[in-house]
Design a protein around this nucleic acid. Structure first.
Lengths: 114, 114
DNA sequence: TTTGAATACCTTGTATCGCAAGGTACTGAA
DNA sequence: TTCAGTACCTTGCGATACAAGGTATTCAAA
């Protein structure tokens, strides 16, 4: 790996850490299908591709955190709209806490409360 | 994977994302050897074990972001004190920016600036 | 009616990386 | 000289994001 690959790599790892969290946050607001989720994440510079998202959605669905319904589209094949379940919301609240804690932790290191 | 393994798993992934960043932050303040780094991270609830840290320090050293010197200990074998390099500091500044951006991104999703 | 472009969903193979577990080596005290 | 404590390092495994490629549906244009 060459030089500034390090930064890109590190950035990628940071993004990975919040992927599941981000998706649950988005679906907590509205039901969405894959392309919209990808676009919304991209809008805030969290780049995700299909090959990452589909297996992840399926995993979350199998864990009972998400569900989906098929919905017709005016142009193109039907879409799989994912929605968050009650169980998903419960987990989301825990992830909220975990994220806040992590932000605090980093802040502690930065300000030398060690 | 069973039920609340999800949260623990997600927490772990979040931590992973900031590991390199955390280590550079710590070494930006003082030179440290492995055990101290592990303790400082643990103090802010970022759990890391030896098997994770050693390869990581070696990788950062090979990339020229860190250096080390041997230093005697009053009890036990000599210690490998790691210190950050100029190059390391430069990359750290970029990670600072990347981290701030990510915190902003999550905040955007949470507050619906989508 | 058939072809092709656009859209959507999914799978496979690969590389990375953290972690559990286990190994080596140095030190000082019993 | 043996043992406990400390420190450094490696190996094998599992999880997972991503690149690349595949299938299916729709609609419009030829």
């Amino acid at each position: 790996m060459e030089d500034s690959g390090f930064i890109e790599n590190s950035r990628t790892q940071m993004r990975r850490g919040v992927l599941e969290y981000s998706i649950l946050l988005i679906l907590d607001r509205d039901d969405e299908y894959a392309s919209t989720i990808i676009r919304k994440l991209k809008d805030v510079d969290i780049i995700v591709v299909e090959g990452t998202l589909y297996p992840l959605l399926i995993r979350l669905k199998n864990m009972g955190l998400l569900n989906y319904r098929w919905q017709e589209s005016t142009q193109g094949p039907p879409r799989k709209y994912y929605m968050i379940t009650e169980k998903g919301r419960a987990q989301l609240r825990e992830l909220d806490a975990a994220w806040s804690k992590l932000v605090q932790s980093i802040e502690s290191i930065r300000t030398e409360k060690l």
